Simulated scan of single mutants.
Amino acid sequence: MSARDVVFPAGRQALYERNRYSPAIRANGFLFVSGQVGSRPDGSPEPDLEAQVRRAFENLNGILSAAGCTFEDVIDVTVFVVDPAAKFDLIWRVVADYWGEAPHPTLTGIGVTWLYGFQFEIKVIAKLPESTAG
């Protein structure tokens, strides 16, 4: 197996190393991004749900940017939500600020019971620009 082509966002490498996973990996022209939550720089959850969703997108955008991508390059999205029946409307209002114009990426939404103290997580696959495809 060849070495993984890992992408780290600025300033968060220690957090990923401590938790033993890669934030994103380039492979075969795609960027596979680990689930991003609304964590503060120290890894703790943002307490307010709206702020947590915004921070999750900012964390995601930091990884996309480090790989030379934007959300426009995202082709597939998976979101995980604790108690989606109670939280989906608020979350989806915030998502609209980051989602962009149609056509939108594909989406899978999954209701979960636990996210390590978080309420929302977003995981994506993006198409790498030709100049950065690994």
Rank of each mutant, 00 (worst) to 15 (best):
A3K: 06
D5T: 15
D5N: 13
D5Y: 04
D5W: 03
V6Q: 02
A10K: 06
Q13A: 01
Y16M: 00
E17S: 09
N19P: 04
R20Q: 11
R20K: 06
R20N: 11
S22M: 14
S22N: 14
P23M: 00
A24H: 09
G29P: 01
F30E: 08
F32D: 13
V33R: 01
Q36T: 03
G38C: 00
R40L: 15
P41S: 02
P45I: 10
P47N: 13
D48R: 15
Q52Y: 01
R54D: 08
R55G: 04
R55H: 08
A56W: 06
F57I: 04
F57H: 09
E58A: 15
E58N: 07
N59Y: 05
N59M: 09
L60K: 03
N61L: 12
G62W: 04
I63E: 02
L64N: 09
A66K: 03
V74H: 07
I75K: 07
V77D: 01
T78G: 07
V79T: 15
F80N: 04
F80S: 06
P84L: 02
A86L: 09
K87S: 12
F88R: 14
D89N: 14
L90F: 01
L90H: 02
L90Q: 11
R93A: 12
D97L: 08
D97E: 15
H104M: 11
P105F: 07
L107G: 09
T108G: 08
T108L: 13
G109Q: 13
T113Q: 05
T113V: 14
Y116S: 15
Y116A: 15
E121L: 01
I122Y: 02
V124H: 07
A126G: 15
